[in-house]
Design a protein around this nucleic acid. Structure first.
Length: 416
RNA sequence: CGGGGUGUGGCGCAGUUGAUAGCGCGCUCGGUUUGGGACCGAGAGGUCGAAGGUUUGAGUCCUUUCACCCCGACCA
């Protein structure tokens, strides 16, 4: 992509109404556009990041036999009345609307009940189980107060997966496999080292749920972890969990974290509340075991910005970056050579954001750092004369002078 | 929802005791520049969040209202 053709531009100053670092940087660099409090649009640049995150999650969910689908944002009142969760006293984040004839509808804040209602039509027998379905879906939650930029909005994108099982053992086994799939996701996002599977407050069925929490100062949660990083407990269940696990509370130290995933088991509660049963081998009607698994896609994006950004701007892990290379041309000779390199790299399947604007080097460098692509290649007049290219890593700031051959080899090595 | 704060060109801001809006960035045109956000010159762009009121006169005072931010509460 040529920057001269992109409609987004960078801003020197962040809007005064944003305090959250992730929102400031994402707006300045042109990844998101704020529509209202807690509601952000994603530009082509931002969308690319979301798609990267989604693709990783998609691959990992597929690896545990998840089947991707997409539910709807308009939901039946009656669906939620089956579990008593239509009531505003029970769920306080509902956006509600109505058809012209007065029929009340809900706007999706979650999809547990709608998924179960749909699955009722397909899952009739023990032979139809287990099943696991997931989606990337826009969730609408009427939060009292939006905050933390894209980390806690009223509209956000979430991957939610639901697994249905005939037995508790099967559900438990599957649940464990999803934990492993989740770990692979966070590893691939580049935040695996600082993300912990955490004991958190549970649902009605299990004592604890599991949260995936990433260490970041921008987080809203406090986690207690041991030195070996093998035990992590959310502050909200610290006493209960340490008692249950027989762990000395004093051996755990607090860290500030942001929740980047939450998984939990419903047992047969949802199935029983909704009156959804399958036929067992002996012909009897049995309730379905349900578990659900969420990853906030937009939130992950925000957390990654918060974690890695420096005083110059965003620093994307290479797997998440919207493009891998920021190509800078300097001067007319540099520009000609950069055109050639742009085509060559693109032909090699490398995704390049090419700063071909008629702008001064300082401005291009500043933008490169703000936008935060992992690698910058600079093509200048002096480089053209010497037959070299400048290669700079965003994270370390290290620069090396490479020949054409060396540059291609380097990129090939780094980008596979 | 309780408390606090802020709304003035796209972004960041100034506007003294009321007298009909200004600066920086950005944008347009011309020229000089070209390795860390250049310089000179000429321009475009704002019913000062909205409504009502006081006044000869309101960005400025009063009332109401909307939006945004922060703290708290809330948060499968």
């Amino acid at each position: 992509m040529r920057r001269s053709k992109q409609f987004t531009r960078t801003l020197r100053d962040a809007p005064a109404d944003e305090v959250a670092r992730n929102a400031q940087l994402l707006i300045r660099a042109g990844y998101v556009y704020k529509v209202m409090a807690g509601v952000y649009a994603y530009t082509p640049l931002g969308l690319r990041v979301l798609e990267r995150i989604k693709q990783i999650v998609r691959e990992e969910m597929d690896s545990v036999d998840g089947q991707e689908l997409i539910m709807t944002n308009l939901q039946h009142k009656t669906t939620w009345q089956r579990t008593g969760r239509w009531d505003d006293e029970v769920v306080d984040v509902w956006f509600k609307t109505a058809l012209q004839d007065g029929t009340e509808l809900g706007l999706a804040w979650s999809h547990e009940e709608p998924i179960m209602e749909m699955m009722q039509q397909f899952v009739k027998s023990y032979k139809d189980l287990p099943q696991s379905v997931y989606q990337f879906q826009t969730k609408l939650r009427n939060e009292l107060r939006a905050k933390s930029g894209i980390m806690r909005g009223r509209e956000f994108i979430m991957k939610d997966m639901y697994s249905l099982h005939a037995t508790e053992e099967d559900c438990d086994r599957y649940y464990e496999s999803v934990i492993e799939a989740y770990k692979r996701c966070y590893d691939r996002f580049g935040i695996g080292d600082s993300t912990f599977v955490t004991f958190a407050s549970g649902g009605a069925f299990t004592k604890f749920s599991h949260e995936f929490q990433t260490i970041t100062d921008a987080g809203e949660d406090t986690l207690y972890i041991n030195d070996e990083h093998t035990v992590a407990v959310n502050e909200e269940v610290l006493d209960d969990a340490t008692n249950e696990l027989g762990i000395d509370k004093a051996s755990l130290k607090p860290v500030t974290t942001a929740e980047v995933g939450n998984i939990f088991k419903f047992g047969t509660e949802k199935s029983e509340q909704m009156g959804i049963y399958y036929t067992a081998a002996d012909g009897s009607q049995k309730p379905i075991y349900l578990a659900s698994y969420g990853i906030g896609i937009t939130r992950v994006m925000g957390v990654i910005v918060e974690k890695f950004a420096d005083d110059k701007g965003i620093v994307w892990p290479v797997q998440i970056a919207p493009y891998q290379v920021y190509l800078v041309s300097i001067g007319e000779k540099g520009s000609q050579k950069a055109d050639e390199l742009y085509k060559e790299l693109t032909d090699h399947g490398i995704e390049v954001l090419y700063d071909d604007r008629d702008a001064r080097p300082g401005e291009k460098f500043a933008d490169a750092e703000l936008i935060g692509l992992p690698y910058r290649v600079t093509v200048s007049e002096r480089g053209v004369e010497a037959g070299t290219y400048e290669f700079t890593e965003r994270q370390s700031g290290e620069t090396s002078i490479l020949t054409h051959e060396e540059l291609l080899a380097k990129l090939g090595e780094l980008l596979g």
